[in-house]
Simulated assay, not measured.
Amino acid sequence: MLHELIREIRAIAQTGLHYTRDAYDRERYERLLEIATQLYGMESDASTEQIEKFFFPEEGYATPKVDLRACVVKDGKVLLVRERACGRWTLPGGWADQNESPIEGITREVLEESGYQVEVGRLYALKDRDRHPYQPKYPVSIYKLFFTAKVTGGEALENTEISEIAFFDPADLPELSLDRVLAEDILQGVQAAQQTGMATPCD
């Protein structure tokens, strides 16, 4: 598909810029990045500025981005947050940050997006975003890490990114933000939260 070709062009150009010492090659790789940006702009509603800001900021060897999500279950219901940007609901989470372990990162994300302090349980899913029906497709590879968690403190607190915070019955979910989460991600998390036994070691 076109988005896969765009991603490959971008990866070749980014990696080439990292290793090349030739000025002419650098110009060619920079042009490839421009072409990848323009092609993705033709396939999405995002502006060139948005694409460059969110999808093409990295330098060096091209590697997948990491998205962290938490399935927080309380009294049989799952915590969801409503994104102001699209008006739809998702599991709290976001991009992994430098100098944070995955558990530190998702603990911070849940607190920032919902106001709740949580204890992270187990890693219950690690997914390649392109192999599942998340929409839209992005010009970068993304690995999605899903953790179970339980509330230990805090209270619902809206912020600049989140307009509502609520717990939902897994059988009656609201309209989801399908670029961030699928119903199956939530149902798998609810099931994993009920399981006991050895968990996957995770930092």
Results as ranks from 00 to 15, higher is better:
residue 1 M to K: 14
residue 3 H to Y: 06
residue 3 H to C: 09
residue 4 E to T: 14
residue 4 E to D: 14
residue 9 I to R: 15
residue 11 A to S: 14
residue 11 A to I: 10
residue 13 A to C: 07
residue 17 L to E: 03
residue 19 Y to T: 00
residue 20 T to G: 08
residue 20 T to Q: 09
residue 22 D to F: 04
residue 23 A to M: 02
residue 23 A to S: 06
residue 27 E to A: 10
residue 29 Y to Q: 03
residue 31 R to M: 08
residue 36 A to F: 00
residue 37 T to N: 11
residue 37 T to D: 07
residue 37 T to V: 12
residue 41 G to I: 01
residue 42 M to T: 02
residue 48 T to S: 01
residue 48 T to P: 02
residue 51 I to S: 06
residue 51 I to Y: 09
residue 53 K to W: 01
residue 55 F to R: 05
residue 56 F to R: 08
residue 56 F to A: 05
residue 58 E to I: 00
residue 65 K to H: 14
residue 66 V to C: 06
residue 67 D to W: 11
residue 69 R to W: 04
residue 69 R to S: 15
residue 71 C to L: 08
residue 76 G to I: 15
residue 76 G to V: 14
residue 78 V to S: 12
residue 79 L to W: 04
residue 80 L to F: 14
residue 83 E to S: 15
residue 84 R to D: 07
residue 86 C to K: 13
residue 87 G to K: 07
residue 91 L to P: 05
residue 92 P to Y: 00
residue 92 P to V: 02
residue 96 A to C: 13
residue 99 N to F: 10
residue 100 E to I: 12
residue 103 I to G: 01
residue 103 I to L: 04
residue 105 G to I: 00
residue 107 T to W: 05
residue 110 V to K: 00
residue 110 V to G: 07
residue 111 L to G: 05
residue 112 E to V: 10
residue 113 E to H: 04
residue 115 G to P: 02
residue 117 Q to D: 11
residue 120 V to M: 06
residue 123 L to N: 15
residue 123 L to G: 13
residue 124 Y to E: 12
residue 124 Y to K: 11
residue 126 L to V: 07
residue 127 K to V: 00
residue 129 R to C: 01
residue 136 P to L: 11
residue 138 Y to E: 14
residue 142 I to Q: 15
residue 143 Y to C: 11
residue 144 K to V: 03
residue 149 A to H: 01
residue 149 A to D: 10
residue 150 K to S: 15
residue 150 K to E: 10
residue 152 T to M: 02
residue 155 E to W: 00
residue 156 A to S: 10
residue 156 A to G: 09
residue 159 N to Q: 09
residue 159 N to V: 05
residue 160 T to Q: 01
residue 163 S to C: 15
residue 163 S to R: 14
residue 164 E to N: 14
residue 166 A to I: 08
residue 166 A to H: 10
residue 169 D to W: 08
residue 170 P to F: 10
residue 173 L to N: 12
residue 173 L to H: 09
residue 174 P to F: 02
residue 174 P to N: 08
residue 175 E to S: 10
residue 176 L to M: 07
residue 177 S to K: 12
residue 178 L to T: 07
residue 178 L to E: 11
residue 179 D to K: 15
residue 180 R to C: 08
residue 181 V to K: 10
residue 183 A to C: 04
residue 184 E to M: 06
residue 185 D to E: 08
residue 187 L to C: 03
residue 190 V to M: 03
residue 191 Q to H: 06
residue 194 Q to N: 05
residue 196 T to M: 13
residue 197 G to K: 10
residue 198 M to F: 00
residue 199 A to Y: 02
residue 199 A to G: 02
residue 199 A to P: 01
residue 199 A to Q: 13
residue 201 P to V: 02
residue 202 C to I: 09
residue 202 C to G: 06
residue 203 D to Q: 14
